[in-house]
């Protein structure tokens, strides 16, 4: 393995780590609006890192140009999708769980959200 392959593997591993963190974050965060942070940031950086790593591994070819287009597309659309979901939830009337709400909730039992059960 040459030097560029090492860099590529490191970048892909780093990207995989951030994707893993984003996945865990989507499961672990307490409410919808905090989960948006995991999707908006962790996923975007993870995908950008992995695609850049693949670009480095591929070298200077047409395929890496296509990978760069995919990278730019994801980098532009992932925040927009996050924003669209946030706006829809806000319009729907989903209340975020904020700092003071968390302190209020601690003594009492957590009441289940009554929003759009499917």
């Amino acid at each position: 393995m040459g030097m560029s392959d090492m860099i590529a593997v490191l970048m892909i591993l780093g990207g995989a780590f951030f994707l893993l963190v984003a996945s865990i974050g989507i499961v672990r965060f307490p409410d919808f609006y905090t989960r948006l942070h995991a999707m908006g940031k962790g996923d975007t950086l993870g995908i950008i890192l992995i695609l850049l790593g693949l670009c480095v591994y591929e070298g200077f070819t047409l395929n890496s140009a296509k990978l760069l287009i995919a990278l730019v597309f994801v980098g532009l659309t992932n925040p927009v999708a996050t924003h669209a979901l946030a706006r829809a939830a806000l319009r729907y009337g989903l209340k975020p769980l904020l700092k003071l709400d968390q302190e209020e909730k601690k003594p009492s039992t957590t009441s289940k959200s009554d929003a759009l059960e499917t």
Partner: peptide, 20 residues
Amino acid sequence: GPTVFDRVLGVGAIGTKTLV
């Protein structure tokens, strides 16, 4: 996911990872 938006968020996250 308690709300439908959580489910959509999950689907979106799965979709972006599937791209990679």
